[in-house]
Simulated assay, not measured.
Amino acid sequence: MASILKVGDAWRAQVRRKGYKSISETFSTKAQAVAWARKIEAEMDARRFNDTRGLANITVKKLIDWYFEEVGTAHQFGKNKIAVLLTWQRTRGHISLADSSADYLTTFVRDRRKAGASGITISIDLTYLGSVFKSARDLRKLPLDLEPLNSARANMAHLKISTKSNERARRPTEKEISDLCDYLDKHSSLPMRDIIHFATESAMRVDEITRLRWIDLNETDRTIIIRDRKHPRQKQGNDQEVPLLGKTYEIIQRQPRPAQITCESRIFPVKVDTITTIFPRAKNALGIKDLHFHDLRHEGVSRLFEQGYQIHEVALVSGHRDWKMLARYTKIKAKDLHHARTKP
C-alpha cells in the first residue's frame, strides 16, 4: 500500500513496490495524493510503469553518441542520416531526454520552418531522432516514450507543413543537352559529354555512374553490375546487374582502359562532387534555368517508357523497388499514346 502523509499544508504520497525504486510526489490535497498513488500502483501491477526520472541525466548528445557507437558499428548509416544526427548534437544536444516533450519538439518544428526547412526535411529530422530513441528503448531499456515524436509529427499537419516532397517534372531539351556538352568540351578536360549522355541513356544516379568498375562489365551480355545500389533499408550489398541499353555500351567502350585492370579500376574515374560542381556552372553560364544533373535520370526513365518498355522492365534498369515511384518519372504527354510502341 502507498503511504499518504501530511507534510505541513501539503500531502505527500509515496509508493514502494518490489522491483521498482521508491517514488513520491507532493500534492495540495489528500484526494490528489491518493489518486496519484493508485494510478502509479496500477501501472506497476500491470508492468506499464516507466520511471523516467533517470532520463534527466542523459542528454540528446550522449544518446546519439551511444547510437553511433552501438548501432552504427553494426549498420552503416547513410551520409544524410549522419549529417542530421550530428546537427541534432550540435544544435540541441544539451537537451535532456526528460525535456524532449511534445511541446519542445513542436517548437523545434516551428523553428526549423522559420529557418526555411521544408516539411520533408523536418520530417526526416524527427524520423532519425526517433530511430535513436527506439533503439535506446529496445536495447538499453530506457523508458523513452515515442509519443512526443508522434505528436510533433501530427502537429505539422495543424501547422500546414506538408511532408510530401515536390515532384519534379523537368526534362532537358535536346538543345540544352547539346549546348551543355559543347560548353563542357571547351571548359573541362573531363569526359562530361559521355557522362551526360550516359546518364540520359542509362537512367543511373550520378554516384552510380562514378562507381562503375571495369571488372563488373559483362561484354558478352552487355550488362554491368551496380554495386551497393540505393535501397530504402539495405545500405550495403545491394548489388544489381542491369542491361546497357541504347548507346550506353558504346559510351563505355570508348572510355580509356588502364593497362592493368584492378578491382578498383573505374570506368568514369571522376568524383561526384566534381560533376555536381561543373554541371551547375555550365548550366548557369548558358542561362539554362532550373535544371539539375539528377533530371538526366528522370529523362532516361521517361525515354524508356516512351520506347515501349513495361514498368517491370524499367524498374530493372532504374532500380526502383516500389513501382509506384516510377509514376513521378513518366511524364508522357497524351498525344504520345497515338504513336506506335517501338523498342530499340
Rank of each mutant, 00 (worst) to 15 (best):
R153C: 03
S178K: 14
S131I: 05
R113P: 02
H158N: 11
K62H: 15
Q307V: 00
V314Y: 02
I58M: 10
G119P: 06
L149D: 06
D103S: 15
R168S: 13
A315D: 02
A2S: 15
R92F: 06
Q240G: 00
Q234D: 00
K134G: 05
P280M: 05
K18V: 07
E147N: 14
K30D: 07
Y329S: 03
V7C: 10
F108C: 10
D125V: 04
A42V: 05
R137N: 06
A115G: 10
G130L: 09
I267F: 03
E313N: 01
K289F: 01
R297Q: 11
P243T: 00
Y67G: 02
T248G: 01
I40R: 12
Q32L: 14
V132G: 07
K81V: 03
P258Y: 12
A37E: 09
L217K: 07
T59H: 13
A203M: 08
G78F: 06
I58A: 08
L146M: 13
R205C: 11
V317K: 02
Q260W: 11
I252R: 07
H298F: 07
T274A: 11
G93E: 03
A37N: 10
N155T: 03
I64L: 07
S96F: 09
V34H: 12
V132W: 07
G246C: 00
F293Q: 02
S100V: 13
R47G: 03
L146Y: 10
E70S: 08
E208M: 08
R233W: 01
F133R: 09
A169K: 13
L142C: 04
E176I: 11
D103E: 15
R112F: 08
Y183A: 11
S131C: 10
D179I: 06
T262I: 02
V132D: 06
N80E: 13
K343F: 14
I332Q: 04
N284W: 03
S100L: 15
I225N: 04
R213N: 06
T59G: 12
R153F: 11
L63S: 05
Q76W: 03
T210M: 14
P243Q: 00
G308A: 01
T277C: 05
I288E: 01
S118K: 14
K160S: 00
T163A: 01
S101A: 08
R303E: 05
D45R: 05
W66N: 05
Y309G: 00
I82Y: 03
R16T: 13
M1P: 15
D179E: 15
H94E: 04
R171Q: 10
A13C: 08
R328Q: 04
A315Q: 02
K79W: 05
R170Q: 13
E43M: 13
I40F: 12
S135C: 10
A282T: 02
N166G: 12
A136C: 09
K39V: 08
T262F: 09
M325V: 01
A334E: 11
D322Q: 05
A154L: 07
P269C: 01
T276V: 08
D99Y: 06
H294S: 06
D216W: 05
E250F: 07
L184G: 11
N80Q: 12
R140V: 01
T276I: 09
S318T: 01
D336E: 11
A199K: 10
A334G: 02
S3N: 15
W36R: 11
L129M: 14
A340R: 14
K61H: 15
T59P: 11
K271I: 03
H320D: 05
I261H: 11
D185S: 15
D221A: 12
A199Q: 11
